[in-house]
């Protein structure tokens, strides 16, 4: 699977998110305080709320619609809530944000 460059790290606000529409669907790219980047399908497992619009804290995001908290690393809802948002691999290589999985998923 190929890594695909998406944007500069600086395009994503710290403790914030940006979105991109790929074949797999809308993808949310989150940036934590310590500049790690995570890629999730921008749909909350609860009622498909746009996670990218939530408040990011630690390695979690709180969904803006009904406050479910999602782990960015695994996409899992924090207990006792249940559910899992689809995740994609993401990395930062010398200031470039790259992801993989989302494109191939669409190509198949």
């Amino acid at each position: 699977m190929e890594w695909q460059r998406i944007c500069d790290l600086e395009d994503i606000p710290r403790l914030g998110a940006r979105t991109i529409c790929l074949a797999a669907g809308p993808i949310a790219l989150f940036r934590t305080r310590d500049d790690r980047v995570f890629a999730l399908l921008d749909k909350c497992p609860h009622k498909a709320g746009p996670l990218s619009q939530g408040i990011v804290h630690g390695t979690r995001v709180t969904c803006p619609l009904h406050d479910m908290v999602i782990e960015l690393e695994t996409g899992l809802a924090v207990a006792p809530d249940e559910g899992r948002a689809e995740t994609f691999e993401a990395r930062v290589i010398s200031g470039n944000v790259e992801i993989r999985g989302a494109l191939t998923a669409a190509a198949e």
Partner: peptide, 19 residues
């Protein structure tokens, strides 16, 4: 601190159930 505001206040608009 924009990232500490609920999305509505960041987007100067109310988020709806379909985003």
């Amino acid at each position: 601190d924009a990232q500490s505001r609920f999305i509505n206040e960041r987007a100067h608009a109310n988020i709806q159930k379909d985003g």
